[in-house]
Each structure stands twice: as structure tokens, then as C-alpha cells.
């Protein structure tokens, strides 16, 4: 659609600037890595980003939606660990068939999500404390199953885990493929379903959304439930990736998930966020981690510090943009058709 006024940049860029920044950032880091290390610039290295971070990608989708609605989910890593532990236990120790085990795990994740949703929506809990409690329950439950590390020995699972989708001389795993599918599905949901749009509306201004007649409570409850469900799906990808389960898995993952959403353009104040952007948030963090691995001598903890730093950087940039916008307040112009005839302005119409 043609713009009504001359803009400094095309409409597509203006409307999606945060997404483009996320893509740009990823390109910068990937380029940096390619420049610093040999063998970095390859399709397989890129595919490995998807493979190594498949579970984070899926979980970050849920975290993005929770951030858009104005909340936060601190339970992500713990729920993944617990679901992974439960699944591994059911498959390897209890020798359960695969499909029922997966169904159970998806229910577990959803139940966690529902608990959070219930506490936040109906009991007025602050999201952080509700999901922090959930984090502790999940972590504790994880250890309750076993304090040891257990391994997946189900031959079919192992086959799925090492399966490679080959193309152009590279490959990705099923977990990575699952992650990509999830991203596409949820981007479509966010853009084209009433539920998706309601999430944005409630996150933008809950009071207005209520007055506009939108189902605020249902939307909030569903969003948290979805985040729990996605954590469970993420645990499937996680299991395929590590083929083992231990209580310390996923520690600190909640920060990575939130950071991915924010780098991808989500505002912690709510109402803004892009799932496709989160993809690049994850890829950027993955690139940094890969660079650290390639470097060889840096401790892996630098990755966590880098993530925290990126998160801080993006939050500050967002704040600067918001403050700047509020100060300049140059509103967009509109065209008035059929200007008001002078005769109407006198007396009562």
C-alpha cells in the first residue's frame, strides 16, 4: 500500500525494524566468527546452530508469547529437565512404549503451564513468583525421579536422534526440523488467529483489551499453558540431543529464552514481539557459543555472560527508543477528505 507521506525508509523496513536488527546482528556475529576462525563459514556450522539449539528454539517460542503478554516464564529450563527426565525414565527404566510416554510428558508440561496460568490469572500472582515456584517444583521433581544420570537406550529413539536430513552437503537433525516447524506454525498462529492477536492486544493494554470485549483471562491462561506445553515439546528435542537425563540440565535456560525473545524484538513491557525474531535471537546466542567453542580456551561460562550482556544492551536500546519517541512525539499525518465547510462552524448544527 502506498504511503501517504514521504518516509525516511520503506514501510516494510519501518514496520519490522526490530526483526531486521535481529537478523543484522546475527549476520554480524556470524561474519565475525567466520573472519576469526577457519572452517566457521560453512552451511554445516549454520545447521549445527539449529541442531544444538533446537530445544531452546522451541522453548523460546513459549517465552516470547509470555513476554508479549507482559509476563515472564522462569520455569522453562526446569520443566525441560523434568520432562526430559520423566521421558527418559519412562522409556529406559520403565520400558514404556514411545507414543504414550510422549503424550504423558506433553501433559506434564501443559500442567505446569496451567499452574502458572492459574496463579497469574486467577490468583493475582506476579508472573515471576508463580513461575519461580514452578521452576523449583520441576527441579525438585526431577531429582525425585532420580539423583543419578540416566541414559536413553531405546533403539528407535537413538535412531531418530542420529537421523540426518541431508541437503546441499549438510544435514540437520529431526529435533532441528521440529524446531523449525514449530517456529513456522506459531508465527502463523501469532499473525492469523484471534488468539494470537489477542495475546498482542492484552500485552499492549490489558485494560483496553478488557473494555474492547476481548477474553483477557482466557488469553493469559492459555498463553502460560502454551509455554508449558512448548517446554514439554522442547524436552523432546532435548532428549534427542543429549540422550540422557540429569537433574542439572537446563540450568539458567530461562535467561537464554527471555534474551532470545528480547533480541528478537520483544519488549519486556509487553505488546511487542516477533517469533521469527526470536529465531534470530537464538541463532545469535548460538553463534556466540560456537565462537567460544572454536576459540577453545575460553570457559563456556562466557556464553552466559555474553547472553546477559546482550539482553542488557537490547533493553537499554529499547528504552532509549521509547524515551526518544515519547519526547519527540511527532505524530503521523493523515489526510482529511472533504475539509470542513466554514458554514458548519457557527452555531449549533
Amino acid at each position: 500500500m502506498k504511503s501517504l507521506q514521504k518516509r525516511r525508509m520503506p514501510a516494510f523496513v519501518y514496520r519490522n525494524i526490530t526483526f531486521l536488527v535481529a537478523v543484522f546482528l546475527f549476520i554480524v556475529f556470524f561474519g565475525l566468527g567466520s573472519a576469526l576462525f577457519t572452517n566457521f563459514f560453512s552451511l554445516q556450522v549454520f545447521c549445527n546452530l539449529l541442531i544444538d539449539n533446537s530445544y531452546l528454539l522451541i522453548a523460546a517460542i513459549g517465552s516470547t508469547m509470555v513476554v508479549i503478554i507482559g509476563g515472564i516464564d522462569l520455569s522453562v529450563g526446569a520443566v525441560i529437565a523434568f520432562c526430559n527426565m520423566a521421558l527418559t525414565y519412562m522409556l529406559s527404566i520403565m520400558k514404556m512404549p514411545i507414543i504414550p510416554a510422549i503424550m504423558i510428558v506433553l501433559c506434564i508440561g501443559s500442567l505446569f503451564g496451567m499452574l502458572h496460568g492459574w496463579l497469574v490469572t486467577f490468583k493475582g500472582f506476579q508472573p515471576f513468583i508463580a513461575t519461580l515456584a514452578g521452576q523449583f517444583i520441576a527441579r525438585g521433581a526431577c531429582y525425585l525421579i532420580t539423583v543419578d544420570t540416566i541414559f536413553v537406550d531405546n533403539p528407535l529413539i537413538v535412531k531418530i536422534a542420529i537421523f540426518k536430513f541431508r541437503f546441499f552437503g549438510s544435514f540437520i537433525s529431526i529435533g532441528a526440523a521440529l524446531a523449525l516447524v514449530m517456529i513456522i506454525v506459531f508465527q502463523i498462529v501469532a499473525d492469523n488467529t484471534q488468539f494470537g492477536r489477542n495475546v498482542y492486544a492484552v500485552g499492549g493494554n490489558e485494560q483496553s483489551a478488557n473494555l474492547m470485549g476481548l477474553p483477557v483471562r482466557r488469553t493469559k491462561f492459555l498463553t502460560y499453558t502454551l509455554s508449558g506445553f512448548l517446554s514439554a515439546v522442547a524436552s523432546l528435542a532435548f532428549m534427542l540431543y543429549v540422550l540422557s537425563a540429569t537433574g542439572t540440565h537446563g540450568d539458567g535456560l530461562h535467561l537464554d529464552a527471555v534474551a532470545s525473545a528480547v533480541i528478537g524484538g520483544a519488549l519486556t513491557s509487553g505488546g511487542v514481539g516477533l517469533i521469527a525474531g526470536t529465531l534470530f535471537g537464538v541463532l545469535t546466542q548460538g553463534t556466540i557459543r560456537t565462537m567460544i567453542t572454536f576459540q577453545g580456551t575460553l570457559s563456556s561460562w562466557w556464553a552466559k555472560i555474553a547472553t546477559a550482556f546482550l539482553l542488557l544492551l537490547f533493553i537499554l536500546i529499547q528504552r532509549a527508543i521509547v524515551t526518544n519517541r515519547e519526547r519527540s512525539r511527532v505524530a503521523k499525518k493523515v489526510e482529511v477528505i472533504d475539509p470542513v465547510p466554514a458554514a458548519e462552524t457557527q452555531g449549533v448544527g
Partner: peptide, 12 residues
């Protein structure tokens, strides 16, 4: 107080 959502488009 305009009870709309400023983050959504006008059409939305």
C-alpha cells in the same frame, strides 16, 4: 483515555 491498544495497527 483512549481505550485502544497502541501497539496494534489502526485496522486491528
Amino acid at each position: 483515555e483512549i481505550n485502544l491498544c497502541p501497539n496494534l495497527s489502526v485496522a486491528e
